[in-house]
């Protein structure tokens, strides 16, 4: 097996806790990630799941170096990027792309779809032949060529998310961070976007970190899963193992809390064990 694309050791991130900020002066730091160790194998989709406040998005931002870790190391493609200065990070960044939760707020309302998709290409010196590259990006995500001249507000939620994917993949990156990319979408659209991402990840050999609060979505898409709680990893294993033989009580609780679309009269009854 080749070396993993990401190798994370003892990762800690501390951020200012604004709820405890004095009126004047600095907010004290709160430790959001409490020492994480894991690898992301090349060419596969890893799910990162947890409830709100578990640190899953902070972890994502630390991976793509939008946040600088306070301790530990992150190595990407065999290179330690933990504290790499911005100038040296720049050539690495084209391989670290992101798809955001809300395409409405992550797409510039005043630019055409073509110009949104072209931005990362220009930034990275691929400004030649732009038209053809944008056309290819649109085609890749199943959008008609006519969309190139449209604006964000003319698109449906699912179409906007396709633009977000097209932009992230325009540079053919090695790694894509997908943070809750389907949570704002209807189920029918959600299924389309997931199917698209699944296909593109396989075709392009992408390594994807798929952050979600929804374990049902993760099962379909991911080869392995990291379950987080309060800034720590509760359980990390192959997807089938996690769903069929969850090792931790927390994972089992998460699974049991998902309302499956099937009749189950016992589901709403108070648990047999004593209430916590």
């Amino acid at each position: 097996m080749a070396e993993p694309l990401f190798s994370v050791r003892g990762l800690k991130v501390a951020l200012p806790d604004m709820t405890r900020k004095p009126l004047f002066g600095r907010a004290p730091l709160a430790e959001i990630l409490k020492g994480l160790d894991f690898d992301l194998p090349r060419g596969s989709v890893t799910g990162i799941v947890g409830e709100s406040g578990s640190g899953k998005s902070t972890l994502g931002r630390a991976l793509v170096r939008l946040l600088e870790p306070s301790a530990g190391s992150v190595s990407f493609d065999g290179r330690d990027i933990t504290h790499l200065p911005e100038a040296e990070l720049r050539p690495v960044r084209r391989n670290l792309q992101m798809i955001f939760q809300d395409p409405m707020s992550s797409l510039n309302p005043r630019r055409t779809i073509a110009s949104i998709i072209a931005a990362p290409l220009k930034q990275n010196g691929l400004g030649d032949n732009l038209k053809a590259r944008v056309a290819e990006a649109l085609q890749r995500v199943g959008l008609p060529q006519g969309f190139a001249s449209r604006y964000r507000h003319e698109l449906s939620g699912g179409q906007r998310q396709r633009v977000g994917i097209a932009r992230a993949l325009a540079l053919s990156p090695k790694f894509v961070l997908a943070d809750e990319i389907v949570s704002g979408l209807d189920v029918s659209t959600q299924a389309q976007i997931l199917t698209l991402l699944e296909k593109l990840a396989a075709d392009m050999g992408l390594t994807v970190a798929f952050i979600s609060h929804d374990l049902s979505v993760i099962r379909r898409l991911c080869r392995q899963v990291i379950v987080m709680r309060e800034g720590a990893i509760v359980e990390a294993s192959a997807t089938d193992t996690l769903f069929e033989k969850p090792q931790q009580a927390y994972t089992r609780d998460l699974l049991a809390a998902i309302p499956l679309p099937e009749i189950d009269d016992a589901w709403l009854l108070p648990a047999a064990k004593a209430p916590a």
Binding site: S188, A191, F243, P261
Partner: peptide, 20 residues
Amino acid sequence: RALMAATPRYTDPLASLKPV
């Protein structure tokens, strides 16, 4: 029927999340 097939179901990943 299409909505049901689109709804994610972790117990049956292949039969769920089907686009409408």
